[in-house]
């Protein structure tokens, strides 16, 4: 039935995880995008897709035809798509900002917060917040 769908989702999950584990920051974000698409499809699969008929009540009828697709998962997926998209946009900007600030796109090099070496090497500058004395 949805074997195709399930297989595709699994492939997307594998691909997404692999991208997410990448050290290139853009790839990482794209990994999240792929995983997001996969997650949406998972929700969609919950509705047992198979019907071709949209969940729209035909003129003259009061209720949906029984062979129509299940509407609730669609509504959920729609919400999830938009949320995921908004977060993805934010993530893209965030990643670009970090890559710009740190002058590098290698995720492993982002050590401003947690520098390598022991605790003694930590340099926390409290100057981030400005205070008028």
């Amino acid at each position: 039935m949805s074997l195709i769908l399930i297989t595709v989702i699994s492939i997307c999950v594998s691909s997404g995880i692999l991208l997410l584990l990448s050290r290139e920051v853009f790839k990482m974000i794209m990994g999240l995008a792929v995983l997001g698409t996969a997650a949406n499809l998972v929700v969609f699969t919950g509705g047992r897709p198979g019907s071709l008929v949209p969940a729209v009540i035909e003129q003259g009828s009061q209720t949906l035809m029984t062979n129509a697709a299940s509407p609730l998962p669609q509504a959920l997926v729609l919400t999830a798509i938009v949320i995921g998209f908004a977060l993805l946009c934010f993530a893209l900007i965030l990643a670009a900002a970090v890559a710009n600030q740190q002058d590098n796109s290698d995720v492993a090099s982002y050590r401003e917060n947690e520098p390598s070496g022991n605790a003694k090497a930590q340099s926390d500058k409290p100057s981030v917040m400005e205070i008028e004395s």
């Binding site: 990482m28 999240l32 969609f44 919950g46 998962p73 959920l76 999830a80 977060l87 982002y110 981030v128």
Partner: peptide, 25 residues
């Protein structure tokens, strides 16, 4: 530091969020 922290927070939390979404679905 703030943007870097946000990136780390985002990447890991987002993973959790996606699992949550899938689980709910």
């Amino acid at each position: 530091q703030q943007t870097e922290a946000a990136l780390k927070y985002f990447a890991v939390s987002m993973l959790g969020t996606l699992i949550m979404l899938s689980a709910i679905g």
